[in-house]
Structure formats: C-alpha cells, structure tokens
Design a protein around this nucleic acid. Structure first.
Length: 493
RNA sequence: GGGCCGUUAGCUCAGUUGGCAGAGCACCUGACUUUUAAUCAGGGUGUCACAGGUUCGAGACCUGUACGGCCUACCA
C-alpha cells in the first residue's frame, strides 16, 4: 500500500522523468534575473507614470506558490525574498517546449520567467510570460496555502517550510538581522572595535553556569564551550583596546524554556575609563535607537503592554525594590540563614543549597522581575552574587552593577569592572570555597586572567546584552524559539 | 525533574454514547481567454504518534513510551 505522500512523490518523479526525456535539465546551474519581484513592481509603476518609458522584457525568478488555471490562460504567483508577483501564461503564446514543461509544473517549483509587465483589469501587477525556465523541480508538496504551517514542532524542525509558508516568520528573522546590524553600527560609530575570542576554552569563566564539555584529540585535552565573553574581552582592554565588543554565541548546559536556549547570542562590550553609569546611558540609547531604526518608533507593544524605550529609563535600587515588592530588606539579613528564614516566612519554597546571592536572585525573579514591564535599571547588587564587579566606594557589601529589565525579562547586565587583581583572586577563591562547601561542581580559576589583571586594567565599564531577548522584545515574541532559526529540540526517534 | 494538554491524509482540521476513516487545501482527470483562497464536474491515496490492555468490536476507554506545547522547577 502506497501512502499518499509516496504517491505524490511518485507523480513528481514521473514529471521529472518526462522533463528529462525532453532534454531539459530540471536543475540548471544559474539564471540571470534582471529584477526582484519588488523591483519589477516598482518598474511597472515607473512605466505607468511616464509616456516615454517603454515596457521592456524583464527576467524574474522565484518559487511557484499558486496556480489559477482559466482554460487557455493561467495565473501563477511566484515569491522571492523581496515579495511576490503574478504571472500570466497564455498557452497559445508559449513555445511547444514551454507548453510541455508548463503541464508538468507544480506549486513549489522554482522557475525563471521573462516577459513584459502589465496590469490585469483588476489592476494586479502581472508579468506576461513569453518564455520560462525550470530552475528546480520540487518533489515534496508544500504546506497548505491558506492556513500555512502551524504545527509548531514542524515549524522549528523544518524551518525552511515555516519561512516559505508564513511571511510573519520571515519578517521576524529579517528584523533580527536588522537589529544586529543596527547594534554594530551604533557601537562602531562610537569607536568600539569588534573582536572575536575563543569559543573553546580550557576553563569556562565570566559567569556561573554549567558549561558543555568537549575534547580535542590532538591535544588530548578537554575544552569547555564558553559561557560568557567577559574574561577574554577584559584581556583586550588590558592589551590597550579601549573600546571592544563581541557579538557571539555562548553555550550554557542548563534548562530549556521559552526564555532559555542552550546556545544563544550575547553582546558584550567593554569601555575603558567608564563606569556603570556611563554604560547605563549607552544601553538605553542603544536600545531606543535600534528600535527607532527598525520599527520607526521607540514605543513598542509587548505582551499586551506598550513599552516606552525612550531614555532615560527608570533607575531604582535593587535593595529598595526588593523591599517594595517582597517586604524583605536584605541588608537587615547579612547572612544566608537569616535571609532564608525571612523568605520562608513568606511561604517561599527555598532551596537549602542556595547561598545568599542566589536567594536574593530568587527574590528578584519572584517578586521584582514580573513587575518590571517598562524598561528599568535595577542598581547595586550584593557583592555575594557579583564576583567580577567593583564594590561601591561607600559600601563594600554592594557592587556597582545593574541589570536592565523590560517586558518582565532581563535583557542586560552590566557593571563597573573589578580591576584590583588581589581582590579578584580573593573573590574567586571565596566563590570556589562556597561552591565546594555546597558540594557543587567547581570551575577552575582562570589563572591566566588573574595574571593579565596584574599587568593593570584601566577602570572599565562592561555590558552584556541577551540579543535573543532583545529581538523578542522588538518583535513582540513570547518565546525565544520564535527568534532563533533552529532552536534546540530533542531528536525525533 | 513535576503537573496539565496535544499527536487523525503532504498541510489545516472534524470525528457525537465504543459500531464502515471524514472535510477543505494540495494532487490526478476533464471544462473554462483577466483570475486573486478562481470556479465547475469527477477521483481518497490513512501504520488514527508508538507498544500493550479492556471489549464481539477501539481513532475514542485503560496503562506505558516517544515527541511537542503551556505552567512549574532549574538558570549570574
């Protein structure tokens, strides 16, 4: 018994055989197209607006997306990445070879067409096809034309079908590309140098996340995929590049959710002689400029709210904000146990493994984060949870660090970088002891980074921005998988 | 990791109380010289996710598995 899809494939195979039997190559090497479909429509408008511009023959190419036969004539739509255009085929005006080929044409095939542009009586821009070429025969049927492809699993696993069938998907990824371009322009204009640093690292530092491990055969050595860009970029600040950034993929071997993908794109930038106040201005200006450049506005819709990205963003103290939303002033509970007890009073389920920094983090994500819909900077984090940030001049229990939130999501993290090599070493050691005490996996200390710091790093403001989340924000998507072309999924058996 | 929901034709989806497996699109055949999800006539091509169980009889009920979605947990 043949399945339906086998039968369709069989029919297409027969068409392919017929086409080959006519001496036609169904997969030729190239096609010279003179215009995109978008350019062709602009050209038609130009012809119509002028009595001197004569209709000329143009060559277009694209995928056949619709066929409306009407006896001796047929209307087909082809799509290319610029848009779509209608084609008009008149069977009596086609060569014998073209007519035979036309009969074996399917929706999904890619063709090149030449002819003159005109408008039908319903004023649809149309190309009257004088000659056409098969550029690629499709053996699989496309998803349905009206509903598109809505099976979310299939959209991710066969993203090409999602892109063919759903124009909104295409728009999201065009915008993602534009966001990244706009960020590059913004930073380049401000004198930042774009650099590339290693993905494979002997120790994964700069953040606290479980890394992926891999192995280099020739060196017979394990490597980690990077979990942050931080430590290498700071080496470059030490090396004398005053403003550097990297837009790169990082990898964290942790949970997958609507806001987490195991590999994601991070922007990190470092600016010598700046502190976190300078970085704050940069972030709000960058995000608002990028939004204006791409959406034409800095007021965006996200999750049913209108977010105003125009600077200045609200700046609020972490301590006061936690107190405001949870009633807990963590300053009054300087050790882990007293803070945990206070959290238990609120009937929070508190993991006894968590240290003070992680407890505070839990307070942020439970009470604060969902409330930060308008873009907001949360300022001055406890030193316990920020080993790479410099303490405040007047309070060595807090560091000059901020996180930026919008739409209830964390989108950026930044601090005045710790540049005292002795203190940095102590912080790493303290962190390692705590990890060990908790019986958790201990990251090796990046000794080479500590050595670099000993040569002297200027005061520096550092920034990390989750690009995927920023794109979610600007495109109004609630799931990170909608803004990653090929999100991580379990393999189908 | 836990909870809830989903998986039926290539795609989008129906399928009632357990009683012959359905529709639209796509595809095939035919008609049609300006259509726009063209229209009209005819054609159903299926491992009902997978494996068991209950039953005279299971797409439907029960158990397990896989994959996905949402929530939750984890997450600098």
């Amino acid at each position: 018994m043949t399945s339906r899809i086998d039968r369709i494939a069989q029919q297409r195979q027969q068409k392919l055989d017929r086409i080959r039997a006519c001496g036609i190559n169904p997969y030729p090497h190239k096609y010279h197209r003179s215009h995109t479909t978008h350019q062709a429509i602009a050209l038609l408008e130009q012809q119509e607006g002028s009595s001197t511009v004569e209709a000329t023959v143009v060559n277009l190419a694209g995928r056949v997306m619709a066929n409306r036969p009407m006896g001796k004539i047929s209307f087909l739509d082809i799509h290319d990445s610029s848009g779509k255009i209608q084609l008009y085929f008149h069977k009596e005006h086609l060569s014998e070879e073209n007519l035979g080929l036309f009969k074996d044409l399917d929706i999904g095939d890619i063709i090149g067409v030449s002819g003159k542009l005109f408008r039908t009586k319903t004023s649809e821009p149309t190309l009257e096809v004088e000659n056409f070429t098969l550029l690629a025969k499709a053996l699989q049927p496309l998803p349905e034309k009206w509903h598109g492809l809505s099976d979310i699993d299939k959209r991710y696993r066969q993203r090409y079908l999602d892109l063919i069938a759903n124009t909104e998907t295409k728009e999201i990824f065009k915008m993602r590309s534009q966001v990244i371009t706009a960020i590059r322009q913004f930073l380049n204009q401000r004198g930042f140098l774009e650099v590339e640093t290693p993905v494979l690292q002997p120790s994964a530092g700069g953040a606290l996340a479980r890394p992926f491990v891999t192995h280099h055969h020739t060196l017979d050595q394990d490597f980690y995929l990077r979990i942050a860009l931080e430590l290498h970029l700071k080496r470059l600040i030490i090396g004398g590049f005053d403003k550097v950034y990297e837009l790169g993929r990082i990898f964290r071997n942790e949970g997958i959710s609507t806001k987490h993908n195991p590999e994601f794109t991070m922007l990190e930038s470092y600016e010598a002689y700046a502190d976190y106040n300078d970085v704050m201005s940069t972030v709000e200006e960058m995000v608002s400029k990028v939004s204006q450049q791409i959406l034409g506005t800095d007021k965006i819709e996200f999750g049913g709210n209108t977010l105003n990205l125009k600077p200045p963003w609200q700046r609020i103290s972490l301590q006061q904000t936690i107190e405001k939303y949870s009633g807990i002033d963590f300053k009054k509970y300087p050790d882990t146990d007293s803070l945990r007890n206070e959290m238990l009073k609120l009937k929070m389920e508190v993991d006894p493994q968590k240290d003070r920094g992680r407890l505070i983090d839990e307070l942020i994500s439970t009470f604060v984060e969902p409330n930060l819909v308008q873009p907001t900077f949360l300022l001055d984090y406890p030193v316990d949870m920020s080993p790479l940030a410099k303490t405040k001049p007047d309070d060595d229990r807090l560091v000059e660090r901020f996180e930026a939130f919008a739409g209830g999501m964390e989108i950026a993290n930044a601090f005045t970088e710790l540049n005292d090599p002795i203190e940095q070493r102590q912080r790493f050691l303290k962190q390692q002891e705590e990890r060990q005490a908790e019986g958790e996996a201990v990251e090796t200390i990046d000794q080479d980074f500590l050595l670099a710091l000993e040569y002297g790093m200027p005061p520096t403001g550092g920034l990390g921005v989750g690009i995927d989340r920023l794109v979610m924000l600007l495109t109004g998507q609630q799931s990170i998988r909608q803004v990653i072309l090929f999100p991580q999924l379990k393999e189908k058996p």
